[in-house]
Amino acid sequence: MATRAPARARRVKGEALHDGFLRYAGFRWLKIATLFSVVAMVSYMLVDVTPRHNGGSWYGYTMGTIGVILILWLTLLGLRKRAMTRGRWSLKTWTSAHVYLGLSLIVIATLHTGFQMGWNVHTLAYALMMLVILSGIFGITVYATIPSALSNNRAEMTQGQMLDALRAIDRQLHDAAQPLPHDQAALVRQSLDQAPFGGGLVARLSGRYPRCGTARAQTALRHWTGDHPDTGQEPLEKIDALLERKLAMLARLRRHLKLKALLEIWLYVHVPVTFALLAALTAHIVSVFFYW
């Protein structure tokens, strides 16, 4: 119904405003990586190396060199991500290339081995690389599936706000528990004193906290409240309602932390193993040239 003055043409209408890192530029890096892998595989078939394909042939060396360069470049993503230099680069493009070229490394490195494995430093390097790639594939999977769940779960609350809400409920619980007899107050204190996400990595990743003090306090307190009619007067009823709210908030916060943990946990494999890989790779290369 209207027109804007042609003052500033900033962006072409309908230009792709946001593609994720996987779909970037119409899967450009997927296409490049696939082409790359196909060329590698076809040439593997066509090149005749006697007596058989191995890492020490000219073809093997070529693949090995490409593999090393790729590995070093892929490692540089960690630097790129943190160095906020000027210039027309986008981390999304880097991630996109990192993902697809990293996957193509499976083909390149495997062809480099000529399918010769053994219990030695060379195969160790290969195994570590595969471990890095596998953790990366896990990473891609969680990056693709978890963000919307994370967004749904937090319902516009920030992590800090969730913690504040928990603290506010705790304060109310503390006040409401003042008139209680000793044994009931001890149960409420059990909820107040608990470390809400204690229980280690397993609990964090599963989101299950079987020894949750709040849940146990509520169950125990319901022994008292269970056979009483609701009068709206009893302090225990108020405590029960507060514990219910605290459990709901804890559930949201724990789900939040679980999802965040899933989004990060794989990096604790991906990155350290990358450094182990670099060490093993160095040993592999040095030994190859040493025993030439």
């Binding site: 962006r11 209408k13 405003l17 994720g20 906020m84 986008s90 981390l91 999304k92 880097w94 991630t95």
Partner: peptide, 25 residues
Amino acid sequence: DGGPACVRACPTGAAIRVAPEDFLT
């Protein structure tokens, strides 16, 4: 040079900067 750092530094492409007239069309 290169424009808004927040958008350039987003690893997954989640962050975008838009003018409303471009976005709301």
